[in-house]
């Protein structure tokens, strides 16, 4: 690809400090990666590999120690304004949904659109209704999150992020807290999103999703990117021993 990457990560390092040197955890080590518009990058690897930390660095939920992240031409640094700008353009879906429990589905989805994007009430309503249709929950607009199933909650959470009309969506183990039936309803929404051309960075254990919807695999272990390959190549012919060992366990 010749166009400019939408996410550009260079030499990213992140260490969680411990009480002494032995207890320090290196979460992300010398990660350099470019992600282009429309790509669906699936980040896989054993637990503790630093996948979630890498993802959380991308929208500033986690501070990094060194290196640089540039998203949509905005450098993510200590400038608060930059961070807010990036967060507007980068949506995130969490493992534990994190819907606001005291608000209805409508309020959950429209809050950020209204307060951050400063859209009018009528526009908010249109966006909310459209997105709920997209994620397949039209009849729950006035329900509270506790009245929804896990799968429905996660789909509302996806709609809430999409409402900001982001350029990139991050998924942090979005299906790990769900049972099998609900996993597929959430994955369907994510697949449709990928089909529509959304740029996505997805941390997941769902190899089926990676195969079907992914365009690139980042295999991480001990904070490093071990392999960065096209999906078909990775599954057919992994290069590294570590990825072979991992694949033999999960497939």
């Amino acid at each position: 690809m010749t166009s400019k990457p939408i996410i550009s990560i260079t030499d990213l390092n992140k260490t969680f400090p411990g009480s002494n040197k032995d207890l320090e955890v290196i979460a992300v080590k010398d990660v350099t990666v470019d992600i282009y518009q429309g790509e669906v990058v699936v980040v896989i690897g054993p637990s503790g590999a630093g996948k979630s930390t890498l993802l959380r660095c991308l929208n500033g939920l986690e501070d990094f120690d060194s290196g640089s992240i540039i998203i949509d031409n905005i450098p993510l640094n200590h400038h608060h304004k930059n961070r807010l700008e990036i967060r507007k353009e980068v949506g995130m879906v969490f493992q534990s949904f994190n819907l606001f429990p005291h608000m209805t589905v409508r309020e959950n989805i429209s809050l950020a659109v209204r307060r951050v994007r400063k859209k009018s009430l009528a526009e908010c309503e249109t966006i909310t209704v459209d997105l709920l249709e997209k994620v397949g929950i039209t009849d729950k607009i006035d329900s509270y999150p506790s009245q929804l199933s896990g799968g429905q909650q996660q789909r509302v959470a996806i709609a809430r992020s999409l409402a900001m009309n982001p350029k990139v969506m991050l998924f942090d183990e979005a299906t790990s807290a769900l049972d099998p039936v609900m996993i597929s309803e959430v994955l369907d929404v994510m697949k449709n999103l990928a089909k529509d051309g959304m740029t996505m960075v997805v941390v997941t254990h769902e190899m089926g999703f990676a195969r079907e919807a992914g365009s690139r695999i980042l295999f991480m272990d001990n904070g490093e990117i071990v392999e960065d390959r096209k999906v078909e190549d990775f599954f057919l012919d992994p290069n590294e021993d570590r990825s072979k060992a991992f694949l033999s366990k999960v497939i």
């Binding site: 994190n98 809050l111 307060r115 951050v116």
Partner: peptide, 22 residues
């Protein structure tokens, strides 16, 4: 829960609005 703060931050909601609404 920490997730409430994170979800709000991830949406780009300002600090004041985060406390006020969420």
């Amino acid at each position: 829960e920490k997730g409430q703060f994170e979800a709000s931050d991830a949406l780009g909601i300002s600090s004041v609005d985060k406390y006020r609404f969420i």
